[in-house]
């Protein structure tokens, strides 16, 4: 069996491995992702209607969505949604919230410092790190060009 080249075997594996249905996956991601954004729009419009400051509408909207997603994660609903929607529930800000709440719950047995405290960032940590790094790079270039 060791005689077989890795490339040959890789080809065999690709043939034997079932692929997910890309079209169907995309439709599900489109509908759920779109709906989450719609809900975001509803929240924004509501805050606007009740006279909240135009500048902070984004903050309020994100906060409400993050709270809802965190609650759904705790109830065990978000993983079910994610199974159906794939990227449709990963890409919106709700997916970011889910990526923070899920490890926080999972690692509580290891204590509140090195369990919850450290592991809460296992997925969000990289997002924040590279987000901030990129924003600094954008800032430096913007400052030089200004």
């Amino acid at each position: 069996m060791n005689k077989k080249s890795k490339q040959e075997y890789q080809k065999m594996v690709e043939k034997a491995s079932p692929n997910s249905n890309l079209i169907l996956d995309c439709i599900k991601a489109f509908v759920i992702g779109g709906l989450i954004c719609c809900i975001g729009q509803v929240i924004t419009n509501l805050f606007e209607y009740y006279g909240f400051s135009q500048n902070d509408l984004g903050i309020y909207t994100s906060s409400v969505l993050i709270f809802i997603a965190s609650f759904m994660t705790g109830m065990g609903w978000y993983s079910k949604l994610g199974k159906f929607a794939g990227a449709g529930s990963v890409v919106p800000i709700t997916g970011f919230s889910n990526s923070i709440t899920s490890p926080a719950i999972e690692f509580k047995k290891e204590g509140y410092i090195l369990g919850v405290g450290a592991k809460i960032f296992i997925i969000a940590g990289p997002v924040i790190l590279y987000g901030i790094l990129t924003s600094m790079a954008v800032g430096i270039i913007y400052y030089i060009l200004k």
């Binding site: 995309c26 991601a29 489109f30 992702g33 779109g34 709906l35 794939g86 890409v91």
Partner: peptide
């Protein structure tokens, strides 16, 4: 919001 948000998610799904 639905269409643009949905499309951004579709890009993610294709990547996954």
């Amino acid at each position: 919001a639905f269409i643009v948000g949905g499309l951004i998610c579709v890009i993610g799904q294709i990547l996954i």
